[in-house]
């Protein structure tokens, strides 16, 4: 039986937060973890967002969405280790690169499907009448995409982004197993040295990081999405015949 008091002691020890010789502290690993995650999410956004917008807008090449979605059935630990074993030996020196490059590849593979699929679905779900009216009033194809489809797709794009962020933060933890830094270090080092407070403390930090990032993205969503789309307006002003049509969203969280 492991008690929480040990975990709290570990988290409360300022020594654990600072770097020591041969071991990085919580601050450093937190920053590492964030850095791996942010890089992967930005790359995945750069791939998934334009691709999803384009496929959703044109209605062409939809097979790409299903193909990328099929990637989700692969277990992330397996992918992580496979890529590490394939790429690792070809990278020499340069610090963490042998761990970092395969990890980033897997994280991008993981984050792209939800962003791509949700962007595509978001554009697809835009009311056909709104799209028709936009074209009929003289918007060019690009204007229809950026002035009508994108703003209305934002709630789904954000939910894809949030789901991607959660999976990336979770999987970045496992990257410590193959030797990368990040908060996962405490989990696996703690396990190896039977230092269970450290292990549990690391796990709790990951959970808190995931919650905080999700909260920040939720705030970003609140700021970015029009109230007309999110439905955050005074319900008293609603006409009697309107019904809230919430879309059931299913997201795979692997890892």
């Amino acid at each position: 039986m492991i008690s929480f008091s040990g975990v709290i002691t570990w988290l409360n020890d300022p020594g654990n937060w600072r770097d020591r010789v041969g071991q990085e502290g919580i601050f450093t690993q937190l920053l590492n973890h964030l850095q791996y995650s942010v890089v992967a999410i930005l790359i995945a956004l750069a791939i998934g967002l334009p691709l999803g917008l384009l496929i959703g807008h044109s209605g062409r090449a939809t097979f790409i969405v299903s193909a990328v979605n099929a990637l989700r059935a692969l277990p992330t630990v397996g992918l992580l280790i496979l890529f590490y074993v394939i790429i690792g030996p070809h990278i020499h020196g340069k610090g963490d690169a042998a761990f970092l490059i395969p990890t980033e590849i897997v994280l991008v593979l993981l984050a792209t499907p939800p962003i791509l699929a949700n962007t595509y679905a978001g554009v697809q779900n835009v009311e056909p009448a709104a799209r028709d009216a936009a074209a009929g009033m003289g918007m060019t194809s690009t204007q229809v995409l950026f002035r009508v489809e994108l703003p209305n797709a934002l709630p789904l794009i954000f939910s894809g982004l949030r789901s991607a962020a959660l999976q990336v933060i979770a999987t970045a933890t496992i990257a410590a197993y193959v030797g990368l830094g990040g908060l996962g270090r405490f989990v696996y080092d703690g396990l190896a040295s039977r230092d269970f407070p450290q292990m549990t403390g690391g796990a709790i930090l990951v959970a808190i990081l995931a919650l905080v990032v999700d909260l920040l993205l939720a705030l970003g969503q609140r700021y970015a999405v029009s109230r007309g789309v999110s439905g955050r307006f005074s319900k008293r002003a609603l006409p009697a015949d309107s019904r809230s049509g919430e879309v059931v969203q299913l997201e795979v969280a692997s890892a």
Binding site: M1, I2, S3, F4, V7, L166, I169, A170, T173, I174, G184, V187, L191, F196, M199, T200, G202, A203, I204, V206, A207, A210, L211, D214, A253, A255
Partner: peptide, 23 residues
Amino acid sequence: GLLYTIPSIALFVVMPSLLGTRI
């Protein structure tokens, strides 16, 4: 939804403290 944000590895590791099980 909040529960869903907790990474699985974190949950596996924290469970013993909550349940009194072995690691």
